[in-house]
Simulated scan of single mutants.
Amino acid sequence: MQLSQYQWSGNPRGMHNEGAYKPINHDRLTSLHLGWYKLVTGGEEFANDCAWMLTQNITPVVRIYRSSPGANPPDDSIRNQWGHYLGAGVKWFEFFNEPNFADPEWPESMKSRIDYRNFDEVIKPLCESWLMFAEFMLNQGGYPGFFSLGETSGVSGAIQWMDALLGYMRDHQRERFAKIIDNGLWWATHPYALNHWYQEQPGQPSVPRDPANYNALEEGWHFEYPYDPYTQSFDPGRTAFGNTGSTPYGDPNGITAMGVAFNQRLQEWFGAGPLPVFGTEGGIYPLPTHDAQRPDSRFPAYDRAVHAEGTVAM
């Protein structure tokens, strides 16, 4: 499929729901002019809400919650629940959620063995179960989302997990995965952006302005970390895969970083893409609820007012 063939609102402004079974305020969704809405559900409780969203040109994205699922495949119960959403017109679905986090995504008996290098107990069963989900969705006209990962960095970070999962598809299930690529695959990312964003000094793309002067209605915002001009000014050549001495294991903590990495691997390993990427969880985080936040000392801090400017600008 070409990007233009995917059915969605065309409006990238989105929001995550408050959780399973919690009522949805329809007026809030329309007043915010949302184009998509991510729902974590306990079952089929939001099917009617999804049908309403589609009448408002809001694209629902659904993941049915499972407690510590590990690598368990879909069962008849979840297929039946998916059927309610498919019947309501939903097309975008996720299955696994951050399987690179042992807690809370894996049962107690497995938590000590969760590693992207554990092929037999982790990577293989995850991929085989995901293929069952993806092929079910394709058969029903849905779009299956590839594994959303917790965007960690380091020796066992998100880049290593992504490569292990895609590497399994490349080496062991290439034909099945290629069919999914061609018929509705997308990727769900969780871009917790930290303070890896800024608004430039007018006419100076590599120089962040004083956050007190941030203005969401003005140009010059940069959310493309680590490809932004400021990062490139002090670490030239840095990418989501790293590629510099200071980032040997990759650097995925930006709004677009993991999506760029995913599409790069699709091109390199499968000759495919680009495919859609939805950031279905994340944003500017940690929240500056009481105090300003500066998780990365290289970038400016943000307080509540600056957080608001950045969120609106995004």
Rank of each mutant, 00 (worst) to 15 (best):
Y225S: 11
K111S: 01
L3V: 13
G70R: 07
G19T: 05
S109Q: 12
Y168R: 06
F299I: 01
T30V: 14
E200M: 13
W106M: 07
F146A: 00
N139C: 10
I114R: 10
L3P: 08
L138G: 04
P125K: 03
Y230Q: 08
R170G: 04
G271I: 01
Y230N: 07
A216C: 13
N17K: 02
P144Y: 00
A71G: 05
N97R: 10
I159Y: 08
Y227G: 05
F146L: 04
R209F: 05
R79F: 15
G150T: 03
I114H: 14
L3G: 10
P236D: 13
W92Q: 06
R176M: 04
G19W: 12
Q293P: 02
R66W: 04
A292E: 12
T30P: 09
G87P: 05
P202W: 12
A20I: 06
R209A: 06
R176Q: 14
V207Q: 15
S4R: 15
L29A: 10
H290E: 09
L149V: 10
V155K: 09
G203P: 06
E200T: 05
G157H: 03
V122R: 09
G10Y: 11
T256E: 15
N253C: 13
T311Y: 14
D115Y: 00
P99Y: 06
V40E: 05
G43M: 04
R28G: 08
I123F: 09
G279K: 02
L185P: 14
D296H: 04
N17E: 01
D228H: 09
P69C: 10
W8F: 15
S233R: 13
G242Q: 02
P69M: 06
N215H: 14
A193P: 05
G19S: 07
W161C: 00
N118S: 03
S112I: 06
R117P: 02
D49Y: 02
F278T: 09
T247H: 15
A313S: 11
E18A: 05
H307Q: 10
A51T: 05
H190S: 09
G157F: 06
W52G: 08
G271A: 00
A292C: 10
I284N: 11
V207C: 06
T247S: 15
N11R: 15
P191L: 01
P300H: 05
V312D: 08
Y116D: 08
G142I: 04
V207P: 09
